[in-house]
Amino acid sequence: YFQGQLNAMAHQIQEMFPQVPYHLVLQDLQLTRSVEITTDNILEGRI
């Protein structure tokens, strides 16, 4: 994955969860590489 793709995914998640800091979303995406998994992590309070 290149950074631009991760940034696009992070923006997509931020639209759904504007209360979660962008850098935390991006940090999780770098591990998961998945909008779905990061979204689940937010919903389950891991982020």
Rank of each mutant, 00 (worst) to 15 (best):
F17G: 00
Q5E: 15
S34Y: 04
D40F: 14
Q14W: 15
I13E: 00
Q30T: 11
H23A: 07
L26R: 05
Y22N: 04
A8H: 10
Q5T: 12
G45T: 02
E15P: 02
L24S: 06
I37G: 08
L6H: 03
Q19N: 14
Y22C: 04
H11I: 13
V20L: 09
Y1K: 11
L24A: 08
D28E: 03
F2D: 14
F2A: 12
I37C: 07
Q30C: 09
L24M: 08
L29E: 01
R46H: 07
L31C: 07
N41M: 02
Q5L: 12
Q19D: 12
I42R: 01
H23C: 09
L43N: 08
Y1L: 13
L24G: 02
I13H: 00
V20C: 07
D28L: 06
R46Y: 07
Y22M: 09
I37D: 09
I13L: 10
D40V: 15
I13P: 00
N7F: 15
Q5D: 15
F17S: 01
N7W: 14
Q12F: 13
D40H: 15
T32R: 01
L29P: 01
Q3Y: 07
F2E: 14
D28C: 05
L6R: 02
M16D: 05
F2W: 15
Q14C: 10
F17T: 00
E15K: 14
H11C: 08
H11W: 12
I13F: 03
L31T: 12
R46V: 06
D40P: 01
I47S: 02
R33T: 07
Q3C: 10
E36H: 08
T38S: 03
T32S: 06
V20I: 14
F2H: 13
I47Q: 02
D28Q: 03
Q12E: 09
T38C: 04
S34G: 02
I47V: 11
P18C: 05
I47L: 14
T39G: 04
E44Q: 15
V35P: 08
L6C: 06
I47R: 02
I37M: 12
E44N: 15
P21M: 06
Y22E: 03
L24R: 06
V20M: 08
Q5V: 12
V20N: 01
T38V: 02
V25I: 15
E36V: 10
N7T: 13
Y22Q: 05
Q14F: 10
T32P: 00
V25D: 00
R46T: 06
M16F: 07
E36R: 10
Q30M: 15
P21C: 08
F2T: 15
L43K: 13
F17P: 00
M9H: 06
L29T: 01
A10W: 07
E36A: 13
R33C: 13
F2S: 15
Q5G: 10
V35T: 06
N7H: 15
Y1M: 11
E44I: 08
T38Q: 01
F2I: 12
N41P: 02
Y22D: 01
Y22V: 07
Q14L: 14
V35L: 10
I47G: 04
L26S: 02
F17K: 01
F17D: 01
E36P: 06
H23P: 06
Q5K: 11
T38Y: 00
Q19F: 13
A10L: 09
A10V: 11
L6E: 04
F2Y: 12
G4Y: 12
E36Q: 13
Y22W: 09
H23M: 09
Q12D: 07
Q30R: 13
V35N: 04
R46D: 03
L6G: 02
L6Q: 04
P21Y: 05
G4A: 10
L26Q: 04
I42F: 04
L43M: 09
I37H: 09
I47D: 01
M16G: 05
G45F: 05
H11V: 11
A8L: 12
P18S: 04
M9C: 08
H23W: 14
N41G: 02
L6T: 04
M9R: 04
F2C: 09
Y22H: 07
L26C: 05
G4P: 08
S34A: 04
P18N: 04
Y1P: 09
T39I: 15
Q3H: 08
M9F: 09
D40W: 15
Q3K: 11
Q27A: 14
L29Y: 00
P21A: 08
E36T: 09
L29W: 04
M16E: 06
M9A: 07
L31I: 14
V20S: 02
F17E: 00
L26H: 05
N7I: 15
T32D: 02
L6I: 10
N7R: 14
Q5Y: 13
L24Q: 06
L24F: 06
D28R: 03
G45L: 05
G4S: 14
F17Q: 01
G45N: 08
P18E: 04
Q19R: 10
F17N: 02
V35D: 03
L26V: 09
Q27V: 08
A8W: 13
P21T: 05
Q30L: 14
A8P: 04
Q27C: 09
G4C: 11
G45A: 05
E15G: 09
Y1E: 13
L31W: 11
A10R: 03
V25Y: 02
R46G: 03
A10Q: 04
V35W: 09
Q27G: 07
I47A: 02
H11Y: 11
M16Q: 08
V25E: 00
L24V: 09
V25H: 02
F2V: 12
E44G: 11
T39E: 04
Q3T: 08
Y1Q: 12
R33S: 09
G45W: 05
R46S: 05
L31N: 12
E15C: 10
L24K: 07
M9K: 05
L31V: 14
H23Q: 09
V20G: 00
I47K: 01
S34I: 03
R33I: 07
N41H: 09
T38P: 01
V20Y: 10
I42D: 01
Q12C: 07
Q27K: 12
Q12S: 10
Q12T: 09
E15R: 13
E44P: 01
Y1G: 11
P21S: 08
R33H: 15
V20W: 08
Q3A: 10
S34Q: 03
A10S: 05
Q27W: 11
Q3G: 08
T39K: 12
N41S: 04
L31A: 11
N7E: 15
L31M: 13
D28P: 05
I47F: 08
E44T: 13
E44H: 14
I47E: 01
Y1N: 13
L29I: 07
G4H: 14
L31Q: 12
Q5F: 12
I42G: 00
Q14R: 11
E44Y: 12
S34C: 06
H23L: 09
L26A: 03
